[in-house]
């Protein structure tokens, strides 16, 4: 048994590195040998299936990811931090437990269900309200993704607020500050790094989300000019095209390169969150 435990420990470690290695090696052949690295990052032209003029530029896809994620954060940050503050400071007992459980259940809704909501509910709604030709766009994806990103932010932000010692609250209240003043003069500064980490983890989650944005943002590879434009994100591109590529082809490898880009983006964001949290606990 002891041996099995150690073996499993090492096999898990092996898998972790295998993923990094495999995805990177498949992609690197493409990035470094077959195409122009600069073009890959800066060209908005992504025409992997064109017969005469194949192009593998990810700028438009990146713009899709950034625009949808950005809008999502506009929604998720106030909702996430606000509800965390409410749950942590203004509720107690059963209400608090109930709210936390609800948030947990919200986090469990599968992304394909969110995507379906975007498609079946938000799409006609947006067409009607904005008189738009199509409701699958940045706005739709942003709202859906925003709602999806809230639970993780709420949970982590609530943890960060909970970690502020009660003596801070008592001192502030004893000085005659209201709970509201205590929250934004004492708690927010004290929990700043934890709250920032909560936001960053939400961003990381949003960047990597696939099915919901695949179904809710339309399929137009373009740099969006308005929230009502359709876009295609990095994740949606892989999901939409992986099934149609031949193994080992340029297109196949290009998708792995997109995967690496995605990986690096989320890795960077998660690492930043990790370092912030660790910086806090080190102090």
């Amino acid at each position: 048994m002891e041996f099995a435990i150690k073996a499993s420990g090492f096999s898990a470690i092996f898998f972790v590195f295998a993923i990094f290695f495999f995805v990177f090696s498949t992609a690197s052949e493409f990035i470094f040998e077959k195409m122009d690295f600069v073009e890959f990052l800066t060209s908005p032209e992504w025409y992997p299936t064109s017969l005469s003029n194949k192009r593998y530029g990810t700028l438009a896809l990146l713009a899709g990811t950034v625009s949808v994620t950005g809008l999502a954060m506009l929604i998720a940050v106030p909702l996430g931090l606000g509800s965390a503050l409410f749950i942590s400071e203004f509720t107690s007992g059963v209400v608090k437990e109930g709210l936390k459980i609800t948030i947990e259940l919200l986090a469990a809704i599968p992304s394909v269900v969110w995507g379906f909501i975007g498609l079946a509910v938000m799409n006609p709604l947006i067409i009607e309200v904005f008189d738009a030709p199509i409701g699958l766009n940045v706005l739709n994806g942003g709202i859906i993704l925003g709602l999806m990103s809230v639970p993780i932010m709420t949970t982590i932000a609530e943890d960060a607020l909970k970690a502020v010692p009660d003596s801070y609250r008592e001192a502030s209240l004893a000085l005659g500050a209201t709970r509201w003043q205590t929250a934004h003069k004492v708690l927010f500064p004290a929990a700043r790094s934890g709250l920032l980490a909560a936001v960053l983890l939400g961003v990381g989650r949003a960047i990597g989300e696939t099915m919901a944005v695949l179904m809710a943002t339309g399929h137009a590879v373009q740099i969006p000019g308005s929230p009502l434009d359709s876009v295609r994100t990095l994740t949606a591109t892989i999901a939409a095209e992986l099934g149609e590529t031949a193994a080992g082809s340029d297109h196949y490898q290009a998708l792995f390169a997109v995967g690496v880009l995605l990986f690096l983006l989320t890795f960077g964001v998660n690492l930043a969150a990790d370092l912030i949290v660790r910086g806090r606990s080190a102090r």
């Binding site: 990381g204 994740t235 892989i238 792995f256 995967g259 995605l262």
Partner: peptide, 11 residues
């Protein structure tokens, strides 16, 4: 744990 699910699909 933070790797997007679609990257797992690639793998």
């Amino acid at each position: 744990a933070g790797v997007p699910s679609i990257v797992h699909a690639l793998f």
